[in-house]
Design a protein around this nucleic acid. Structure first.
Lengths: 107, 107
DNA sequence: ATTTATTATCGTGATATTGCAATATAGATA
DNA sequence: TATCTATATTGCAATATCACGATAATAAAT
C-alpha cells in the first residue's frame, strides 16, 4: 500500500505501533528470549542458535537495538548484547496501559 | 528478504509475533481505541474518524478481526464492530508473560 | 424496480520487509 | 605483515504491506 500515513495518528499511537513492529518478527522474539537467557551474548552465537545467517541476525539485532531494547558493548572483536531492562519495563508499561484502557472502555 | 522463516521458531514465538504484527500499524491501534470507545461501531464511522478510506479501513478491520480481537454482527446493512474482550485479555496475558519471563531472566 | 447506504473485495502502484552472498571493518594472533 | 575471527554494511531478489479507486454485494427506503 505505499507508505503508512503516520501523521494521521497521535504520537503515542505511533510509538506503540513502532514497538509492536519490533516484536512482530519471530526472529526478534527468539533473539530477545536467547539474549535474556545468556545475558551478554554474541551475534555469532545468536545466529547459530536461531539458525539465521550472521548478516540477517545482525540486522535484526540492529532493529531491536535501535528501538532501545538491547544494549551492547565491544570487548576486543566481540560485541556483547544484553537486554535493556529499563526500556523493556517501559515497554511492558506501554502495552499494559493499552490493554487496560481498552479493556476499561468495554467493561 | 523474501519470506519469513517461521519454521525456525516455536509455535508460541510465532503466535506472539503474529499478534504483535496486528498491533504494529498505527491505524489498527487507533481503530481499537475508537471501537473501545463507541462499543459497537461502523466501518464508515471508523473510516471518518481515523481519516483513512473506507476500503483501507475495512482491510484493517479484517486483519484485526481475523486475529480475533474484534467481533462483528450485521444489523440491516450495517456491520457493528466491537472488541472481543476475552481475546484481548488472552493477548494481554501473552505479552505480560513475555515481558515477565524476559525480565526474570535478566534479574 | 430503482435508488441509496454500507461494507467487502479486486486490482494495482508504491513502499517496506526479509534473507543472504559478498564485501568491508576492526581487533587479535601468529 | 599476513591471517584469523567477529561483526556490520551493501546490494540484490523475493515477498509482504499499505492505500485507494473501482466494483460487487446486500439490504433498506422510496
Amino acid at each position: 500500500m505505499g507508505v503508512s500515513k503516520r501523521h494521521l495518528h497521535t504520537m503515542s499511537v505511533n510509538q506503540l505501533a513502532d514497538m509492536a513492529k519490533v516484536l512482530s518478527h519471530p526472529a526478534r522474539i527468539s533473539i530477545l528470549n536467547y539474549v535474556g537467557d545468556c545475558d551478554g551474548c554474541l551475534c555469532k552465537d545468536i545466529s547459530e542458535t536461531i539458525k539465521l545467517s550472521q548478516p540477517t541476525t545482525s540486522q535484526h539485532l540492529q532493529i531491536i537495538k535501535k528501538a532501545g531494547l538491547l544494549k551492547s558493548k565491544f570487548e576486543g572483536k566481540s560485541q556483547y548484547y544484553r537486554i535493556n531492562i529499563e526500556k523493556l519495563n517501559k515497554l511492558k508499561g506501554l502495552f499494559q496501559e493499552f490493554f487496560e484502557t481498552t479493556e476499561a472502555k468495554c467493561g
